[in-house]
């Protein structure tokens, strides 16, 4: 059986020639959660956008393949690609406020995708959405569906977006730091909710985060990203037991533990970063040669 998502040697550049993704390879098996960790600016969001076909126009893919359930996205016509991505994927975004249109009510924003992509009747879509709102533990769907986004709390908005993401039964969900913009108290609930729905629906998730603590809770597989390059990939359990790459070890030392929040945190070691920079510079040089 083919992977749900298979990215091979994906490189992307900015107009000035700078690489934002450096031969990234990663795969997500059906029903699996793969965490994509790395510090801010590492290119995590870029990978998510590349998969969903919404890269900024300034970012250009220069090599590599992306297969969504065995279909090569690069070979499809734009229209067919849009339809495929629309039907099989969904996004749980980082900021639940800007992900909802402020001038439209929640209800139609949630249903129009089901109607548009899956061709459902409005009635069927409405029923489906109510079912999902129940699954994300929204107890007054009537009020929520009639609300404008700004009338809901951040946590409620994220619940709505989670419900909308699962409603079309996508095979793959890209969750881009879905708890980062929320209050700490709400973060755990939302994380539990995503994990529960993921199990229930058997959806594969590419879970983007900079928080190793979150990784341990939700994912089976982990890819560690630094400066657009995957420096380590492993089973979550193996990674936490014995991180191989010095950067991963440094990242772990820099992550607070709930068991001992006052333990001293080390910033990521200078020597490790210098080593990484050299490694990446060498790789870039080797990469440039065959590409001119």
């Amino acid at each position: 059986m083919s992977a749900c998502l298979d990215i091979a040697n994906l490189s992307a550049v900015l107009p000035n020639g700078q690489r934002v993704l450096r031969s990234v390879s990663l795969s997500v098996q059906p029903g699996e959660v793969r965490a994509l960790v790395g510090e801010s600016g590492a290119g995590k969001t870029m990978i998510g956008k590349a998969v969903l076909g919404v890269l900024p126009s300034s970012v250009r893919i220069v090599e590599g393949d992306m297969l969504l359930e065995g279909e090569d996205l690069g070979r499809l016509q734009p229209k067919a690609r849009r339809t495929l991505i629309g039907a099989r994927t969904a996004l749980i975004p980082q900021d639940p406020l800007t992900a909802l249109n402020p001038s439209r009510r929640i209800g139609p924003q949630m249903t129009d995708r089901l109607v548009r992509i899956l061709g459902w009747s409005g009635e069927k879509a409405d029923m489906r959405i109510r079912q999902l709102l129940d699954e994300v533990q929204i107890r007054d769907p009537e009020r929520v569906l009639k609300s404008y986004p700004h009338e809901l709390s951040g946590g409620m908005r994220q619940r709505v977006l989670i419900a909308a993401a699962f409603a079309a039964e996508p095979r793959l969900i890209v969750a881009d730091e879905p708890t980062t913009a929320l209050d700490v108290t709400v973060q755990k609930q939302i994380l539990r909710l995503i994990a529960a729905l993921q199990r229930e629906h058997g959806t594969a998730i590419l879970f983007v985060t900079h928080d190793l603590g979150v990784v341990a809770k939700i994912s089976q597989k982990v890819s560690v990203l630094y400066a657009g390059k995957v420096v380590e990939e492993a089973d979550a359990a193996a990674l936490f037991a014995a991180p191989q790459h010095p950067y991963t070890r440094a990242l772990m030392a820099a992550t607070p533990r709930y068991t001992d929040p006052f333990a001293s945190l080390k910033p990521v070691d200078e020597a490790v970063l210098a080593g990484l920079a050299a490694e990446i510079a060498a790789a870039d040089l080797a990469w440039r040669r065959p590409h001119g």
Binding site: V54, T89, P102, S103, R113, R116
Partner: peptide
């Protein structure tokens, strides 16, 4: 805005998004 991106992921065309997501705002 992210909701414009969301509409693109959901398969809406450029003109559709302009009229549906941008114009009302």
């Amino acid at each position: 805005m992210d909701y414009v991106e969301n509409a693109r992921i959901a398969g809406y065309g450029r003109i559709g998004i302009m009229l549906r997501e941008v114009l009302p705002n």
